[in-house]
Design a protein around this nucleic acid. Structure first.
Lengths: 159, 159
DNA sequence: GGATCATTACTCGGATACGCCGTGTCCGAGTCTCCCGGG
DNA sequence: CCCGGGAGACTCGGACACGGCGTATCCGAGTAATGATCC
């Protein structure tokens, strides 16, 4: 197939960055405004190139859209209410680090096959539970939570 | 207190190694036999020092016991039926890599506090579910599964 | 005035180099065992 | 024959390098807006 061998596994931080980026996009896409990677990076305090790598994954999954050229940037392809955390999780090809690491320990040895099977079963079950949890949350929910909390804190700065 | 600052977070592979080590210990502790770190390392195809680091955590949690000197090694302190995966998870101070990484992304920025709160809530809920799953499995269960599967494969090597 | 086209500025995506964390190797401290000598 | 002591050997735990992966910096390719020019 295609040479997708480059960077098949994402680091855990990518998930948090992806979520924050999408929230930022959801709140500035009201009038089809542009959002270049640098601006997003400023808001999440990271590097522009790293954001581009993450957003490229999201673009490949159809969650965001990348427009090049002058005044280009990233735009949401779907309504924030229809983007669940599970979509993001799958988009960044996030293999659960705990379980993938656990499975790595069963690469060789006399009982590796048996351990691998048992660990795989556990990992599958746990990941299914996790996805079930992630399905229930959408970017729109996160936007509401974060921004309402920010406004409340702004109106009542008594710490 | 004590200088516990050294290596506070465990890598994901430690969990799998810990589980495999405990299974191996459970199956050779029938007559109080000894199990030095080198022997365990051979079985899980890893390094002896790494095993010692992991088993030291388990010893600190009271799951295994380390005896020094000639013919020393590690011994199970509890019955395999009473050791759950959750115990091991906590013993190695395994902070879920996905969630800890996600939380690292909320260290700074204008909305970092709000994101941190939201992410923490999600992480807590997910980790509670995970622990609930891990509580249901014991080392004894894993022993049965692994060794029965190994025997079945041995009796029927028709691959 | 309107359309066409070259210029330009700004973007994304990939290649390369640095830094850090996990891992592998070595060494010292401690202790249990074994053997030998004495009673 | 039984007991005590010393040597020995084997173990664990910690300190010091190596390697791989994630991250940051730089660069080229591409595209959409802009302005000038021509009809």
């Amino acid at each position: 197939m295609s040479m997708e061998k480059n960077q098949v596994a994402a680091t855990p931080r990518w998930f948090g960055f992806a979520l924050q980026s999408l929230v930022f996009l959801a709140n500035s896409t009201c009038p089809e405004s542009r959002c270049p990677s640098g601006e997003i990076a400023d808001h999440v305090c990271s590097e522009a190139t790293l954001m581009r790598r993450i957003l490229a994954r999201l673009a490949r999954a159809g969650i965001v859209e990348a427009r090049e050229g002058r005044d280009g940037g990233y735009y949401l392809s779907k309504a924030p209410e229809t983007i669940t955390f599970a979509d993001v999780y799958r988009a960044v090809q996030m293999t659960e680090p705990l379980f993938s690491g656990m499975l790595e320990t069963t690469s060789e040895g006399p009982l590796s096959a048996e351990f691998n099977l048992a660990f795989q079963e556990l990992a599958d079950e746990a990941e299914a539970h996790l996805l079930q949890l992630l399905e229930k949350r959408t970017i729109a929910d996160l936007c509401d939570i974060v921004y309402s909390a920010a406004e409340a804190r702004k109106e009542d700065p008594a710490n």
